[in-house]
Amino acid sequence: MELRLAQGTPCWVSLLTDDLAGARAFYADLLGWTYTPGPGQLGAYVRAELDGAPVAGLGVSTATGFPVQWTSYFAVDDADHTAQLVRACGGTVAVGPLQAERAGRMAIAADVSGAVFGLWQGEEHTGREAGPEPGGPAWTELLTPDTDGAVAFYTAVLDRPVRNADDESTLLVHGRPVAGIRHRAELRGHPPRWRVHFAVRDADATARHAVGLGGRILVEPHDTARGRAARLSDPQGGHFSVLELR
């Protein structure tokens, strides 16, 4: 068994889509992913890999009207206990906690503002810590109109401190920033949400390539404090960001 990632570490991202075959083809071409089967009780679900290492999950949404979306998961030592904390702190638990075969134990929850996130208690599958490899998860950040409420919620639920700042507060694990919390008064019709970023070598070229594959550019490539980034949509409507490696 691999060592479990530290509590509060973003460890996995998963897409629920209404066209699994189309999503697989899009991300394979855009980010270089290959696929292997995932846990059977999660339905039609595959794990995306880079050079044999798992980086993301893709599955089919069975809920009518459920939006196509990426979900960020956080490593926890005890998914059942953390799910109880979510409820006690004013959030909701929509799925689980449930056992994903021998891979681990998971739950899908929402914070006090309705932003959806996952909990993962890794066993045989510990997930993947955000890293700099092209095609892999690079960063995740929460967009919310209530940063104070979000900071209090995640500090209590994940038992990790948050460093407050005017532009972006950051969740810390052993003193290292692992995720951001950003204030957005206007979310343009979207609910508060965790935004997934994937590492790429060239944000501009990746954005153009996404359009060629049937995706859309939601926010043109631009420079940020973390590097050059772009906000994109896959052909099925799943929103994600790409972040250029420095």
Rank of each mutant, 00 (worst) to 15 (best):
E2R: 14
G8A: 05
G8F: 13
T9Y: 05
C11W: 03
L16G: 13
D19Y: 03
L20P: 01
A21T: 13
A21V: 09
L31M: 04
G32N: 05
P37E: 03
L42N: 03
Y45D: 02
R47C: 01
L50F: 01
D51Q: 09
G52C: 02
A53K: 08
A53N: 01
A56C: 03
A56L: 01
G59Y: 04
V60Y: 00
F66E: 12
P67I: 11
A83G: 10
A88Y: 08
V93P: 03
V95R: 11
P97W: 01
P97R: 12
Q99P: 02
Q99D: 15
Q99I: 09
A103Y: 11
A107D: 04
A109L: 00
A110N: 01
G114S: 02
V116I: 13
G118K: 01
G122A: 10
G122K: 10
G122C: 13
E123R: 14
E123F: 10
E124H: 07
R128E: 01
E129P: 00
E129N: 05
A130P: 12
P132D: 15
P132A: 15
T140N: 15
T140S: 15
E141H: 04
E141D: 09
L142D: 06
T144G: 03
T144V: 07
P145Y: 10
A150R: 05
V151A: 03
V151S: 05
A152S: 09
R160G: 08
A165G: 10
A165S: 14
D167Y: 11
T170D: 04
L172C: 10
V173I: 06
R176H: 12
H183T: 13
R188N: 13
P191K: 13
R193E: 12
R193Y: 15
V196P: 06
F198E: 10
A199M: 13
V200E: 05
V200R: 06
R201E: 14
D204I: 01
A205W: 11
A207P: 07
H209V: 00
A210H: 12
V211D: 00
G212Y: 12
G212F: 07
V219M: 12
D223Y: 05
R226V: 02
R228M: 09
A230T: 11
S233R: 15
S233Q: 15
P235H: 03
Q236C: 14
G238L: 04
V242D: 12
V242I: 09
L245V: 12
L245C: 06
